[in-house]
Each structure stands twice: as structure tokens, then as C-alpha cells.
Amino acid sequence: MTKQTSFTQGKILQPLILFAFPVLLALFLQAMYGAIDLLIVGKFASSVDVSAVSTGSQIMVTLTNLVSSFAMGLTILLGQQIGRGEKEAGGKSVGTGILFFIIIAVIMSIAMLFLAPQVSSLMNAPQEAFDKTVAYLRICGGGMVVIVAYNLIGCIFRGLGDSKTPLITVAIACVFNIIGDLILCAIFHMGTEGAAIATVFAQVISVLISLLLIRKTELPFTLHRKYIKNH
């Protein structure tokens, strides 16, 4: 496991910088999903596809940042409880977070699946690219579950003092996103839909790796199924 950062002993500035930089870089890489899609679609697809990806990716970045902001709150609370040695309280916070993020994932997924035309219209998507924008939002919106899952696992790692592991997983996802974009857009000429599918697939890879790593981590809090409720 990646070495954890301690904020309870010694000077605070250096550990804070070492902890914060991977967080900022991970958020930057998450925001780059849409930019990568736009770059590759612009190279191998039509201007209509470029317009659709440009509009759709802005909406997805906004939703991702919203989820990341919620995750930061759990990171802070969990870090405080771990620092005080409150194992049961930490487990209950994670349990509440799991329930909270499940609700967020369901609401966002349903909203993007059914309200994609209205959102596209609100964003003034060009008429020629309107249907493709809707398709991009529905595919990526259907993947909100994995976006939320990644941010939940990432905030737990950061609450443990480990901000490097979430960075590594999102960097791996970026690589898979590029590979997926090239295969679906350059070879199969799927355009907007291909870029959206590649993005969701890359995020699934990120979640699977995160789950594998956290299962191998000795957690400093107690988590039971009965804790997965509102505390």
C-alpha cells in the first residue's frame, strides 16, 4: 500500500503539500476525460461529433466536480475520526457515505437518462449535433454509478492519508480512455457514441482497480453492513 501521510505529528506544511498535490492532479485528470474525447473525436470524426462531445463533456465535468466536492466532505470527517482513533465512528461515517452516494448515483443516472434532451437544449446544443449530444449524455450519464463509486473509494483512501492511490487509478483510467477512444473512433468510426463508451469503460476499470486495492488495505475503522444507513 502507498505510504500514508500523517497530519498529527511534526510540521504540517510539507505533509499538506505532499497530500494536496496528488488530489489536485487527480481532479485535473478527471476533468481531462472530456478534453481527450474532444481531441480524438476532432481527429477521426465529423464537426457534428466534435460539437456534441464539447457540449456533453462540459456537463459531465460539472457533475463530476459536484460529486468530488461531496466526497471531500467525507474525506475530512473520516480523517478526523481516524486521527482520534474512533474506529466505530469512522465505520459509521463510511456507511452513511455509501448510502448517500448510492442515492446520488441513482438520481444523477435517472436524471441524465431521461432529461438529456432538456439539458442539451438548456446548453444550446446546435440543432445538427443535438441528437448526438443527447446520446453522449445518456451514455455517460448511465455511467454516473461508476463515477460516484470511484469518488467514494477515492475519498476513503484520502481519509486514510493516502492521496496517491486515487491518482494512480485515475491515471490508469485515462490511459484506457485514450485506448478506447482510438479503437472506437479511429477504427470503428463510432464518433460521439464511441467516445462516451470509452469514457465509461475507463471509469469502470478505475473502480475495479480501486476496489482491488482497498480490499488489500488494512482499514483503521470498523465497517459492518448494519452501518450502511443514515447516522
Rank of each mutant, 00 (worst) to 15 (best):
V175D: 01
Q203P: 00
C155E: 01
M123W: 08
F188R: 07
L167Y: 03
V106F: 11
N124M: 11
I110F: 02
G143Y: 05
L152D: 01
M108F: 10
A135Y: 00
L152M: 14
L182P: 04
I156W: 01
Q118N: 09
F188E: 01
Y136H: 03
L212A: 15
P166W: 04
N151A: 07
L137V: 02
A196R: 10
P117I: 11
R158Y: 04
I103P: 00
A186G: 10
F114G: 05
M123N: 06
A149G: 04
A202C: 08
G180K: 05
N124L: 13
Q203T: 06
F157N: 07
R158S: 08
I139N: 11
P117N: 09
Q118H: 12
I107H: 14
V204A: 07
Q203A: 01
I107L: 15
G194I: 09
A105W: 07
L184S: 03
F157W: 08
K164W: 04
F114L: 15
V175C: 05
S121D: 07
C174M: 11
I107C: 15
V119K: 05
D131Q: 15
M190V: 00
L211V: 06
V145Q: 00
S206T: 05
R158D: 03
A171M: 10
L122I: 00
Q203F: 12
T169C: 11
I107W: 12
M123L: 13
V170R: 09
